[in-house]
Amino acid sequence: MEKKNDWRAWLYLAPVIILLSVFTFYPLISTIVIAFTSDYKYLTQSGSGFDISNFAEIFASKQVDNGDGTFSTVYSDVVKYAIPNTLIIVFVTVPLSIIVSLMIAVGLNSIKAFKKIFQTIFFMPYVTNAIAVGMVFAVIFNDNGLWNYVFRSMGTHWIDQGAPASKAMVALCIYSVWHALPYKILIFLSGLQNIDKQYYQAASVDAAGKFKTFMNVTVPLLSPQILYIMITSFIGSFKEYSSIVGLFGGPGTLKNYRNMYTVVYYIYDSIAAKQVQVGCAAAVMLFIVILIFTGIQFIVSSKRVHY
């Protein structure tokens, strides 16, 4: 409207702009700068120049003397644990939780009686504390826990001290899926409720079966929600941290081993170790990966997912 209102608008925006500048925009730039600073000293907050040595350090493997004249290569925790773990979490929990939550949402959408009660139950994991429930899962999965009692035949020792990473990963994935369900069900259900009933009538006129209708009507019409959930879950899986702290109480099932490490865990550890420059470099890489995924979502949703 009138231009003299300008200063008033900026006054209303001032708190947000100041806070964002200090705690979002400045850190964004500063993190990138630190990531590319060589010889960054945490105490003096200064470095000697610009290079990519911090990035190299994340992936650097060391030659360790075996004591008998031979050397063995020790890969960095990021290469050895964080990246494989993250990939497993991404490619196991994301598809699994999407399929299960989609099935639950379709089921919920097709019933009338008790729908509210089911909706409430399925949303309950959302209003829980990731650490607290992680500890509950730790009780379920520990050596004398329910899981070992029921699945004795599959062997014991899933998450306790000395448990192999492969088994601990099963526990972590089950917990992640459990925790991820409510949000996905909520989004899918609201998407399903918005689908025009006419499509289903048309499908039934064509005598299409239940499964065929689901694959040819429901899934395409739900594709915006599926894409959104897929991208946000990918990003969420890259940032797995609280569930690991809750479930294992630390970065691994073995003492001094970080076999449950993730990239984000590495970033937080770098602060405690006062090695913030490598943490910043890892954060920048995480940021780039997330940008790529967000970009994919943007491109795909503007091209394909439109009905």
């Binding site: 705690f23 850190p27 964004l28 993190t31 630190i34 940032k239 970033i267 913030v276 954060a283 940021f287």
Partner: peptide, 9 residues
């Protein structure tokens, strides 16, 4: 922007 970008700084 992931929160991890901001946490350190």
């Amino acid at each position: 922007i992931p929160g991890e970008m901001m946490v350190i700084t």
